[in-house]
């Protein structure tokens, strides 16, 4: 099962999130502590916004289909970069000939000319049956940009298509509404095709200024007979967050300082440290939104009833 990570807040060395902690995102690629029936060996991707860089609204991009733990370029890069927003992902795929490990399937997805990126942890069961019914809900120009074979890229195109301007920078409210609308469309299309088995959709969507994350599943708890993903999906797919001030190592432990109002937020499929005491679990069936404002970080969780 894939693992995702998002950060929004004051500038933070990317290596603190990707490498330095004892359950960092890169470590989760080969040694995840939760939902560990699948390793996340099918590639790494990252989008990171640094307001001091050229074209600050455009994120840095790093993608590789090789194992990130052996990637020296990523390690060097992560040591020099201190973004205010970051979305990263390590990808899993099924251990079969059906899994496609390719650059075009790497998250976060980001179509040229658009300002929104998406990383996904989950899978839509029986997606091939419903894929083409989604076409009518996706902006044709966006549909043409789908290059890969994943359900995640279609979810991304669907969310973009719900925005007033898919090439603009939506505010947090519009981004949250677009995400919820996309889930409603997916529910309708699934129902239309008689698809009623568990399909987790934990997504993280960002513009570099706002973050929207979901911990959600369609038809949680229902599985096809003899399903190979059963043990992975029996627990609700995990999502955690830590909120506060600066994320740094203090007295040997990685923690956020206790700032009020909060200035920084980390969202991750699993805590970045084996000691999870400073992390909170995102409630099941919920949406989390965050935005960097002049007074600090505006943050909200709400029930996601779509």
């Amino acid at each position: 099962m894939c693992r995702l990570l998002a950060y929004l807040g004051e500038p933070l060395p990317a290596r603190s999130l990707l490498f330095d902690t004892d359950n960092s995102l890169v470590r989760q690629s080969y040694s995840p502590r939760m939902m560990n029936t699948f390793l996340n060996l099918a590639g790494f991707g990252m989008k990171a916004w640094d307001p001091t860089s050229l074209h600050a609204d455009e994120p840095f991009t790093y993608r590789t289909t090789t194992l990130p733990t052996f990637d020296r370029n990523l390690r060097f890069f992560a040591s020099k970069l201190a973004p205010t927003c970051l979305v990263a992902h390590v990808r899993a795929t099924t251990y079969s000939g059906e899994g496609v490990v390719a650059d075009t399937n790497l998250h976060p997805f980001h179509f040229p000319g658009t300002r929104v990126v998406l990383a996904h942890n989950g899978h839509l069961r029986q997606f091939p049956r419903m894929r083409f019914a989604l076409v009518e809900h996706v902006d044709p120009a966006l549909a043409q940009r789908i290059e890969g074979t994943t359900d995640s890229e279609w979810i991304y195109a669907l969310i973009l298509s719900q925005l007033d301007d898919p090439y603009g920078v939506p505010d947090t409210r519009e981004l949250a509404e677009a995400t919820a609308n996309a889930l409603r469309i997916l529910r309708e299309v699934r129902a239309g095709h008689g698809i009623d088995t568990s399909s987790p959709v934990n997504v993280c969507v960002s513009t570099g200024r706002s973050l929207v994350a979901t911990r959600f599943s369609f038809d949680y708890g229902w599985y096809p007979p003899a399903d190979e993903m059963l043990e992975t999906d029996l627990p609700f797919v995990s999502l955690w967050y830590a909120i506060g001030g600066e994320y740094a190592r203090r007295d040997g432990d990685w923690r956020m300082s206790g700032d009020d109002p909060p200035r920084s937020l980390i969202i991750a499929s699993e805590p970045l440290t084996t000691d999870s005491s400073s992390w909170l679990e995102v409630p099941e069936y919920s949406m989390l939104t965050a935005e960097l404002g002049p007074g600090g970080l505006e943050f909200e969780t709400r029930d996601l009833d779509v």
Partner: peptide
């Protein structure tokens, strides 16, 4: 004797 139990919460509190 006596012991106290405490919970670490987000934000280091």
């Amino acid at each position: 004797g006596a012991v106290a139990t405490s919970l670490q919460v987000s934000g280091g509190r």
